[in-house]
Write a protein that binds this DNA or RNA. Sequence first.
DNA 1: CACATATTTGACCGAGCGTTCTCGATGGCA
DNA 2: TGCCATCGAGAACGCTCGGTCAAATATGTG
Lengths: 198, 198
Amino acid sequence: MSRVKEFDVGEACEGALTLFRSQGYEATSVSDLVAHLGVAKASLYATFGTKHDLYVTALKRYAEQADARVVAQLSEPGSGVAAVRRLFDGYVAEILSDEARMGCFVVNAAIELLPHDPDVARLVERSWDTLEVALTMALERARAEGELPDGSDPATLARFLLTVLQGLRVLGKGTDAASRVHAAVSQAMRLLIQERSD
Amino acid sequence: MSRVKEFDVGEACEGALTLFRSQGYEATSVSDLVAHLGVAKASLYATFGTKHDLYVTALKRYAEQADARVVAQLSEPGSGVAAVRRLFDGYVAEILSDEARMGCFVVNAAIELLPHDPDVARLVERSWDTLEVALTMALERARAEGELPDGSDPATLARFLLTVLQGLRVLGKGTDAASRVHAAVSQAMRLLIQERSD
DNA sequence: CACATATTTGACCGAGCGTTCTCGATGGCA
DNA sequence: TGCCATCGAGAACGCTCGGTCAAATATGTG
Protein backbone atom coordinates (compact mmCIF):
# COMPACT_ATOMS: atom_id res chain seq x y z
CA MET A 1 0.00 0.00 0.00
CA SER A 2 0.89 3.60 -0.30
CA ARG A 3 -1.34 6.61 -0.47
CA VAL A 4 -4.94 6.10 0.46
CA LYS A 5 -7.99 7.28 -1.48
CA GLU A 6 -9.41 10.54 -0.26
CA PHE A 7 -12.95 9.87 -1.40
CA ASP A 8 -15.42 7.10 -0.65
CA VAL A 9 -15.87 4.96 -3.74
CA GLY A 10 -19.37 3.90 -2.74
CA GLU A 11 -20.43 7.48 -2.16
CA ALA A 12 -19.01 8.57 -5.49
CA CYS A 13 -20.83 5.75 -7.24
CA GLU A 14 -24.04 6.74 -5.51
CA GLY A 15 -23.55 10.34 -6.61
CA ALA A 16 -22.95 9.29 -10.19
CA LEU A 17 -26.06 7.14 -9.98
CA THR A 18 -28.18 10.10 -8.94
CA LEU A 19 -26.80 12.25 -11.72
CA PHE A 20 -27.20 9.62 -14.44
CA ARG A 21 -30.62 8.67 -13.18
CA SER A 22 -31.97 12.19 -13.21
CA GLN A 23 -30.31 13.50 -16.37
CA GLY A 24 -29.67 10.42 -18.46
CA TYR A 25 -26.44 9.14 -19.92
CA GLU A 26 -25.79 11.54 -22.77
CA ALA A 27 -26.92 14.65 -20.95
CA THR A 28 -24.54 13.99 -18.08
CA SER A 29 -21.01 15.13 -18.88
CA VAL A 30 -17.85 14.05 -17.15
CA SER A 31 -17.47 17.64 -16.00
CA ASP A 32 -20.91 17.37 -14.37
CA LEU A 33 -19.76 14.30 -12.52
CA VAL A 34 -16.54 15.96 -11.41
CA ALA A 35 -18.43 19.01 -10.16
CA HIS A 36 -21.06 17.08 -8.20
CA LEU A 37 -18.86 14.31 -6.88
CA GLY A 38 -15.96 16.45 -5.74
CA VAL A 39 -13.59 13.94 -7.32
CA ALA A 40 -10.93 14.89 -9.85
CA LYS A 41 -11.41 13.75 -13.39
CA ALA A 42 -8.30 11.58 -13.46
CA SER A 43 -9.28 9.92 -10.18
CA LEU A 44 -12.67 9.14 -11.65
CA TYR A 45 -11.09 7.48 -14.65
CA ALA A 46 -8.54 5.62 -12.50
CA THR A 47 -11.28 4.25 -10.26
CA PHE A 48 -14.20 3.57 -12.58
CA GLY A 49 -12.80 3.57 -16.11
CA THR A 50 -14.69 5.41 -18.82
CA LYS A 51 -17.94 7.32 -18.45
CA HIS A 52 -19.76 4.35 -19.90
CA ASP A 53 -18.13 1.99 -17.41
CA LEU A 54 -19.22 4.24 -14.57
CA TYR A 55 -22.75 4.37 -15.92
CA VAL A 56 -22.96 0.60 -16.11
CA THR A 57 -21.53 0.26 -12.61
CA ALA A 58 -24.08 2.70 -11.23
CA LEU A 59 -26.93 1.01 -13.06
CA LYS A 60 -25.85 -2.39 -11.79
CA ARG A 61 -25.70 -1.04 -8.25
CA TYR A 62 -29.19 0.44 -8.56
CA ALA A 63 -30.72 -2.66 -10.14
CA GLU A 64 -29.21 -5.00 -7.58
CA GLN A 65 -30.45 -2.97 -4.66
CA ALA A 66 -33.90 -2.41 -6.11
CA ASP A 67 -34.33 -6.01 -7.19
CA ALA A 68 -33.19 -7.35 -3.84
CA ARG A 69 -35.78 -5.21 -2.09
CA VAL A 70 -38.53 -6.43 -4.40
CA VAL A 71 -37.57 -10.06 -4.03
CA ALA A 72 -37.41 -9.75 -0.26
CA GLN A 73 -40.78 -8.04 -0.18
CA LEU A 74 -42.42 -10.64 -2.41
CA SER A 75 -41.02 -13.61 -0.56
CA GLU A 76 -42.17 -12.53 2.87
CA PRO A 77 -44.28 -15.19 4.55
CA GLY A 78 -48.04 -14.83 4.38
CA SER A 79 -50.49 -14.07 1.62
CA GLY A 80 -48.97 -13.80 -1.84
CA VAL A 81 -51.64 -11.39 -2.97
CA ALA A 82 -51.00 -9.19 0.05
CA ALA A 83 -47.29 -9.21 -0.78
CA VAL A 84 -48.02 -8.08 -4.32
CA ARG A 85 -50.27 -5.36 -3.01
CA ARG A 86 -47.57 -4.18 -0.62
CA LEU A 87 -45.12 -4.11 -3.50
CA PHE A 88 -47.40 -2.00 -5.66
CA ASP A 89 -48.25 0.34 -2.81
CA GLY A 90 -44.53 0.77 -2.24
CA TYR A 91 -44.00 1.63 -5.90
CA VAL A 92 -46.81 4.17 -5.78
CA ALA A 93 -45.41 5.78 -2.67
CA GLU A 94 -41.95 5.92 -4.20
CA ILE A 95 -43.20 7.42 -7.46
CA LEU A 96 -45.38 10.05 -5.78
CA SER A 97 -42.65 11.05 -3.34
CA ASP A 98 -40.01 11.34 -6.07
CA GLU A 99 -40.18 15.10 -6.27
CA ALA A 100 -37.28 15.38 -8.70
CA ARG A 101 -39.14 12.85 -10.87
CA MET A 102 -35.96 10.95 -11.61
CA GLY A 103 -38.00 7.84 -12.30
CA CYS A 104 -36.67 4.32 -12.34
CA PHE A 105 -33.07 4.12 -13.44
CA VAL A 106 -33.66 0.80 -15.17
CA VAL A 107 -36.53 2.19 -17.24
CA ASN A 108 -34.56 5.32 -18.03
CA ALA A 109 -31.59 3.25 -19.13
CA ALA A 110 -33.73 0.92 -21.21
CA ILE A 111 -35.44 3.75 -23.06
CA GLU A 112 -32.31 5.78 -23.66
CA LEU A 113 -29.75 3.08 -24.45
CA LEU A 114 -31.65 0.05 -25.74
CA PRO A 115 -31.35 -1.75 -28.03
CA HIS A 116 -27.92 -0.47 -29.00
CA ASP A 117 -26.03 -0.91 -25.73
CA PRO A 118 -25.36 -4.58 -24.93
CA ASP A 119 -24.09 -3.97 -21.39
CA VAL A 120 -27.18 -2.04 -20.44
CA ALA A 121 -29.36 -4.56 -22.25
CA ARG A 122 -27.92 -7.36 -20.10
CA LEU A 123 -28.63 -5.51 -16.86
CA VAL A 124 -32.12 -4.45 -17.87
CA GLU A 125 -33.13 -7.93 -18.98
CA ARG A 126 -31.74 -9.41 -15.80
CA SER A 127 -33.69 -6.97 -13.65
CA TRP A 128 -36.94 -7.58 -15.49
CA ASP A 129 -36.44 -11.34 -15.37
CA THR A 130 -35.81 -11.14 -11.64
CA LEU A 131 -38.98 -9.17 -11.06
CA GLU A 132 -41.00 -11.48 -13.24
CA VAL A 133 -39.73 -14.57 -11.44
CA ALA A 134 -40.34 -13.07 -8.01
CA LEU A 135 -43.87 -12.07 -9.02
CA THR A 136 -44.53 -15.52 -10.45
CA MET A 137 -43.42 -17.20 -7.25
CA ALA A 138 -45.58 -14.97 -5.10
CA LEU A 139 -48.56 -15.64 -7.33
CA GLU A 140 -47.93 -19.37 -7.28
CA ARG A 141 -47.92 -19.20 -3.52
CA ALA A 142 -51.19 -17.31 -3.73
CA ARG A 143 -52.72 -19.87 -6.03
CA ALA A 144 -51.64 -22.73 -3.77
CA GLU A 145 -53.43 -20.95 -0.94
CA GLY A 146 -56.53 -20.55 -3.04
CA GLU A 147 -56.26 -16.77 -3.18
CA LEU A 148 -56.52 -16.54 -6.95
CA PRO A 149 -59.62 -17.12 -9.03
CA ASP A 150 -59.81 -20.44 -10.85
CA GLY A 151 -58.04 -20.36 -14.18
CA SER A 152 -55.54 -17.69 -13.19
CA ASP A 153 -52.08 -18.39 -14.54
CA PRO A 154 -49.33 -17.05 -12.26
CA ALA A 155 -46.79 -16.70 -15.09
CA THR A 156 -49.18 -14.72 -17.28
CA LEU A 157 -50.30 -12.56 -14.38
CA ALA A 158 -46.68 -11.90 -13.44
CA ARG A 159 -45.89 -10.68 -16.96
CA PHE A 160 -48.96 -8.49 -16.83
CA LEU A 161 -47.98 -7.00 -13.49
CA LEU A 162 -44.45 -6.39 -14.73
CA THR A 163 -45.94 -4.41 -17.60
CA VAL A 164 -48.06 -2.34 -15.25
CA LEU A 165 -45.01 -1.59 -13.11
CA GLN A 166 -43.11 -0.21 -16.09
CA GLY A 167 -46.14 1.82 -17.10
CA LEU A 168 -46.27 3.35 -13.63
CA ARG A 169 -42.67 4.44 -13.96
CA VAL A 170 -43.34 6.14 -17.27
CA LEU A 171 -46.44 7.99 -16.12
CA GLY A 172 -44.59 8.99 -12.97
CA LYS A 173 -42.47 11.26 -15.19
CA GLY A 174 -45.48 13.38 -15.95
CA THR A 175 -47.35 15.82 -13.77
CA ASP A 176 -50.41 14.78 -11.82
CA ALA A 177 -49.49 11.14 -11.98
CA ALA A 178 -51.36 10.38 -8.76
CA SER A 179 -54.77 9.60 -10.20
CA ARG A 180 -53.37 7.45 -12.99
CA VAL A 181 -51.04 5.58 -10.72
CA HIS A 182 -53.73 4.88 -8.14
CA ALA A 183 -56.16 3.78 -10.83
CA ALA A 184 -53.64 1.43 -12.39
CA VAL A 185 -52.83 -0.26 -9.09
CA SER A 186 -56.44 -0.59 -8.00
CA GLN A 187 -57.44 -2.18 -11.31
CA ALA A 188 -54.42 -4.47 -11.44
CA MET A 189 -55.24 -5.74 -7.97
CA ARG A 190 -58.86 -6.20 -8.98
CA LEU A 191 -57.65 -8.66 -11.55
CA LEU A 192 -55.94 -10.70 -8.84
CA ILE A 193 -58.76 -10.78 -6.34
CA GLN A 194 -61.50 -10.72 -8.96
CA GLU A 195 -63.83 -8.29 -7.31
CA ARG A 196 -66.22 -6.02 -9.11
CA SER A 197 -65.18 -2.65 -7.75
CA ASP A 198 -62.72 -0.93 -5.42
CA MET B 1 -40.50 34.71 -53.64
CA SER B 2 -37.32 33.67 -55.36
CA ARG B 3 -35.60 30.35 -55.33
CA VAL B 4 -37.65 27.32 -54.31
CA LYS B 5 -36.69 24.78 -51.68
CA GLU B 6 -34.94 21.73 -53.11
CA PHE B 7 -36.02 19.37 -50.37
CA ASP B 8 -39.41 18.34 -49.08
CA VAL B 9 -39.96 19.84 -45.65
CA GLY B 10 -42.31 17.05 -44.60
CA GLU B 11 -39.86 14.39 -45.69
CA ALA B 12 -37.02 16.05 -43.84
CA CYS B 13 -39.15 16.30 -40.72
CA GLU B 14 -40.05 12.64 -41.03
CA GLY B 15 -36.38 11.72 -41.35
CA ALA B 16 -35.48 13.75 -38.31
CA LEU B 17 -38.32 12.06 -36.47
CA THR B 18 -36.94 8.62 -37.25
CA LEU B 19 -33.45 9.60 -36.15
CA PHE B 20 -34.56 11.27 -32.92
CA ARG B 21 -36.95 8.45 -32.15
CA SER B 22 -34.40 5.71 -32.54
CA GLN B 23 -31.37 7.43 -31.01
CA GLY B 24 -32.81 9.96 -28.62
CA TYR B 25 -32.30 13.69 -28.46
CA GLU B 26 -28.81 13.98 -27.05
CA ALA B 27 -27.34 11.08 -28.99
CA THR B 28 -28.45 12.57 -32.31
CA SER B 29 -26.11 15.26 -33.56
CA VAL B 30 -26.85 17.89 -36.14
CA SER B 31 -24.23 16.25 -38.34
CA ASP B 32 -26.19 13.01 -38.08
CA LEU B 33 -29.27 14.84 -39.26
CA VAL B 34 -27.45 16.46 -42.15
CA ALA B 35 -25.98 13.13 -43.24
CA HIS B 36 -29.27 11.21 -43.14
CA LEU B 37 -31.57 13.92 -44.42
CA GLY B 38 -29.48 15.08 -47.32
CA VAL B 39 -30.21 18.64 -46.34
CA ALA B 40 -27.51 21.22 -45.78
CA LYS B 41 -26.90 22.38 -42.26
CA ALA B 42 -27.78 25.98 -42.96
CA SER B 43 -31.03 24.99 -44.68
CA LEU B 44 -31.93 22.91 -41.66
CA TYR B 45 -31.46 25.87 -39.35
CA ALA B 46 -33.25 28.25 -41.71
CA THR B 47 -36.24 25.92 -41.98
CA PHE B 48 -36.61 24.41 -38.52
CA GLY B 49 -34.57 26.60 -36.18
CA THR B 50 -32.35 24.97 -33.60
CA LYS B 51 -31.90 21.27 -32.99
CA HIS B 52 -34.30 21.51 -30.07
CA ASP B 53 -36.91 23.22 -32.22
CA LEU B 54 -36.63 20.49 -34.80
CA TYR B 55 -36.97 17.83 -32.10
CA VAL B 56 -40.13 19.43 -30.75
CA THR B 57 -41.55 19.78 -34.25
CA ALA B 58 -40.88 16.12 -35.00
CA LEU B 59 -42.35 15.02 -31.69
CA LYS B 60 -45.45 17.11 -32.26
CA ARG B 61 -45.84 15.61 -35.72
CA TYR B 62 -45.51 12.08 -34.34
CA ALA B 63 -47.89 12.65 -31.43
CA GLU B 64 -50.55 14.25 -33.57
CA GLN B 65 -50.52 11.45 -36.12
CA ALA B 66 -50.42 8.70 -33.51
CA ASP B 67 -53.13 10.28 -31.36
CA ALA B 68 -55.39 10.91 -34.32
CA ARG B 69 -55.13 7.25 -35.28
CA VAL B 70 -55.96 6.14 -31.75
CA VAL B 71 -58.90 8.49 -31.44
CA ALA B 72 -60.25 7.40 -34.81
CA GLN B 73 -59.87 3.77 -33.86
CA LEU B 74 -61.58 4.20 -30.52
CA SER B 75 -64.49 6.19 -31.86
CA GLU B 76 -65.42 3.75 -34.59
CA PRO B 77 -69.03 2.69 -34.31
CA GLY B 78 -69.78 -0.58 -32.62
CA SER B 79 -68.67 -2.23 -29.42
CA GLY B 80 -66.46 -0.07 -27.20
CA VAL B 81 -64.75 -3.10 -25.76
CA ALA B 82 -64.02 -4.41 -29.23
CA ALA B 83 -62.55 -1.04 -30.17
CA VAL B 84 -60.26 -1.16 -27.16
CA ARG B 85 -59.22 -4.67 -28.07
CA ARG B 86 -58.46 -3.60 -31.62
CA LEU B 87 -56.38 -0.73 -30.27
CA PHE B 88 -54.36 -3.01 -28.04
CA ASP B 89 -53.89 -5.60 -30.75
CA GLY B 90 -52.66 -2.84 -33.00
CA TYR B 91 -50.16 -1.73 -30.38
CA VAL B 92 -48.92 -5.27 -29.96
CA ALA B 93 -48.51 -5.72 -33.69
CA GLU B 94 -46.67 -2.43 -33.96
CA ILE B 95 -44.33 -3.25 -31.07
CA LEU B 96 -43.54 -6.74 -32.27
CA SER B 97 -42.94 -5.62 -35.83
CA ASP B 98 -40.70 -2.73 -34.78
CA GLU B 99 -37.48 -4.53 -35.62
CA ALA B 100 -35.29 -1.52 -34.92
CA ARG B 101 -37.02 -1.31 -31.54
CA MET B 102 -37.33 2.45 -31.77
CA GLY B 103 -40.24 2.36 -29.38
CA CYS B 104 -42.81 5.09 -28.92
CA PHE B 105 -41.40 8.55 -29.55
CA VAL B 106 -43.61 10.04 -26.84
CA VAL B 107 -42.38 7.59 -24.23
CA ASN B 108 -38.80 8.04 -25.33
CA ALA B 109 -39.15 11.81 -25.12
CA ALA B 110 -40.83 11.67 -21.73
CA ILE B 111 -38.14 9.48 -20.23
CA GLU B 112 -35.21 11.36 -21.71
CA LEU B 113 -36.37 14.96 -21.39
CA LEU B 114 -38.91 15.12 -18.58
CA PRO B 115 -39.31 16.81 -16.24
CA HIS B 116 -36.75 19.42 -17.32
CA ASP B 117 -38.02 20.28 -20.80
CA PRO B 118 -41.26 22.30 -20.71
CA ASP B 119 -41.95 22.08 -24.46
CA VAL B 120 -41.68 18.31 -24.45
CA ALA B 121 -43.66 18.14 -21.22
CA ARG B 122 -46.54 19.99 -22.86
CA LEU B 123 -46.65 17.64 -25.83
CA VAL B 124 -46.37 14.51 -23.72
CA GLU B 125 -49.12 15.55 -21.33
CA ARG B 126 -51.35 16.48 -24.21
CA SER B 127 -50.83 13.13 -25.88
CA TRP B 128 -51.52 11.18 -22.71
CA ASP B 129 -54.59 13.26 -21.95
CA THR B 130 -55.89 12.65 -25.45
CA LEU B 131 -55.44 8.91 -25.12
CA GLU B 132 -57.05 8.87 -21.70
CA VAL B 133 -60.06 10.83 -22.90
CA ALA B 134 -60.49 8.64 -25.97
CA LEU B 135 -60.29 5.51 -23.85
CA THR B 136 -62.75 6.91 -21.35
CA MET B 137 -65.25 7.71 -24.08
CA ALA B 138 -64.96 4.26 -25.60
CA LEU B 139 -65.47 2.68 -22.20
CA GLU B 140 -68.45 4.89 -21.44
CA ARG B 141 -69.95 3.76 -24.68
CA ALA B 142 -69.25 0.19 -23.64
CA ARG B 143 -70.86 0.71 -20.26
CA ALA B 144 -73.93 2.26 -21.82
CA GLU B 145 -74.24 -0.85 -23.97
CA GLY B 146 -73.92 -3.06 -20.92
CA GLU B 147 -70.59 -4.49 -22.02
CA LEU B 148 -68.79 -3.75 -18.78
CA PRO B 149 -69.31 -5.54 -15.48
CA ASP B 150 -71.35 -3.67 -12.88
CA GLY B 151 -69.29 -1.26 -10.83
CA SER B 152 -66.72 -0.63 -13.56
CA ASP B 153 -65.67 2.99 -13.74
CA PRO B 154 -64.70 4.08 -17.27
CA ALA B 155 -62.39 6.87 -16.07
CA THR B 156 -60.48 4.57 -13.74
CA LEU B 157 -60.28 1.83 -16.33
CA ALA B 158 -59.02 4.32 -18.91
CA ARG B 159 -56.20 5.44 -16.61
CA PHE B 160 -55.35 1.82 -16.00
CA LEU B 161 -55.28 1.02 -19.70
CA LEU B 162 -53.13 4.07 -20.37
CA THR B 163 -50.65 2.74 -17.84
CA VAL B 164 -50.58 -0.66 -19.50
CA LEU B 165 -49.97 0.96 -22.87
CA GLN B 166 -46.91 2.79 -21.58
CA GLY B 167 -45.66 -0.41 -19.97
CA LEU B 168 -45.95 -2.20 -23.29
CA ARG B 169 -43.80 0.44 -24.93
CA VAL B 170 -41.10 0.05 -22.29
CA LEU B 171 -41.00 -3.74 -22.41
CA GLY B 172 -40.98 -3.56 -26.19
CA LYS B 173 -37.46 -2.16 -25.91
CA GLY B 174 -36.23 -5.45 -24.52
CA THR B 175 -35.71 -8.75 -26.25
CA ASP B 176 -38.39 -11.42 -26.28
CA ALA B 177 -41.10 -8.94 -25.49
CA ALA B 178 -43.73 -11.10 -27.18
CA SER B 179 -44.77 -13.20 -24.20
CA ARG B 180 -44.94 -10.24 -21.87
CA VAL B 181 -46.82 -8.07 -24.30
CA HIS B 182 -49.35 -10.76 -25.09
CA ALA B 183 -49.83 -11.56 -21.43
CA ALA B 184 -50.35 -7.91 -20.54
CA VAL B 185 -53.00 -7.40 -23.20
CA SER B 186 -54.86 -10.61 -22.45
CA GLN B 187 -55.05 -9.78 -18.76
CA ALA B 188 -55.99 -6.16 -19.33
CA MET B 189 -58.85 -7.27 -21.56
CA ARG B 190 -59.89 -9.82 -18.97
CA LEU B 191 -60.49 -6.96 -16.62
CA LEU B 192 -62.88 -5.38 -19.09
CA ILE B 193 -64.88 -8.45 -19.97
CA GLN B 194 -64.53 -10.04 -16.58
CA GLU B 195 -63.93 -13.58 -17.67
CA ARG B 196 -61.93 -16.13 -15.79
CA SER B 197 -59.37 -17.16 -18.40
CA ASP B 198 -58.23 -16.55 -21.98
C1' DC C 1 14.50 9.09 7.03
C1' DA C 2 14.07 7.64 2.34
C1' DC C 3 12.00 4.54 -0.88
C1' DA C 4 8.09 2.85 -3.44
C1' DT C 5 3.55 3.15 -4.59
C1' DA C 6 -0.79 5.42 -5.53
C1' DT C 7 -3.74 9.44 -5.72
C1' DT C 8 -4.51 14.20 -6.80
C1' DT C 9 -4.21 18.04 -9.53
C1' DG C 10 -4.71 20.77 -13.47
C1' DA C 11 -3.12 21.41 -17.83
C1' DC C 12 -3.72 19.41 -22.12
C1' DC C 13 -5.31 16.66 -26.34
C1' DG C 14 -7.90 16.03 -30.64
C1' DA C 15 -12.46 15.54 -31.89
C1' DG C 16 -16.94 16.83 -32.18
C1' DC C 17 -20.57 19.76 -30.61
C1' DG C 18 -24.47 23.37 -32.01
C1' DT C 19 -24.62 27.42 -34.46
C1' DT C 20 -23.44 31.14 -37.74
C1' DC C 21 -21.56 32.97 -41.82
C1' DT C 22 -19.71 33.44 -46.37
C1' DC C 23 -20.11 32.52 -50.98
C1' DG C 24 -21.30 31.08 -55.49
C1' DA C 25 -25.27 28.98 -57.79
C1' DT C 26 -30.15 29.05 -58.73
C1' DG C 27 -34.52 30.51 -60.29
C1' DG C 28 -39.13 33.32 -60.01
C1' DC C 29 -40.45 37.89 -61.42
C1' DA C 30 -40.37 42.69 -63.24
C1' DT D 1 -32.45 40.43 -69.28
C1' DG D 2 -31.27 41.84 -64.75
C1' DC D 3 -32.57 41.76 -60.01
C1' DC D 4 -32.14 39.70 -55.59
C1' DA D 5 -34.00 36.72 -52.25
C1' DT D 6 -33.15 32.09 -51.24
C1' DC D 7 -30.79 28.06 -51.94
C1' DG D 8 -26.79 24.35 -51.03
C1' DA D 9 -22.12 23.38 -49.62
C1' DG D 10 -18.86 23.87 -46.35
C1' DA D 11 -15.54 26.69 -43.72
C1' DA D 12 -15.26 28.79 -39.40
C1' DC D 13 -16.81 29.98 -34.67
C1' DG D 14 -16.28 29.33 -29.72
C1' DC D 15 -17.04 25.82 -26.72
C1' DT D 16 -17.44 21.48 -24.55
C1' DC D 17 -16.84 16.81 -25.04
C1' DG D 18 -14.49 12.28 -23.27
C1' DG D 19 -10.08 10.99 -22.16
C1' DT D 20 -4.83 11.31 -20.99
C1' DC D 21 -0.49 12.82 -18.96
C1' DA D 22 3.33 14.56 -16.03
C1' DA D 23 4.30 16.52 -12.02
C1' DA D 24 3.24 17.26 -7.27
C1' DT D 25 1.66 15.25 -3.09
C1' DA D 26 0.65 12.01 0.41
C1' DT D 27 1.06 7.51 2.58
C1' DG D 28 2.66 2.78 4.42
C1' DT D 29 6.94 0.18 4.73
C1' DG D 30 12.11 -0.70 5.11
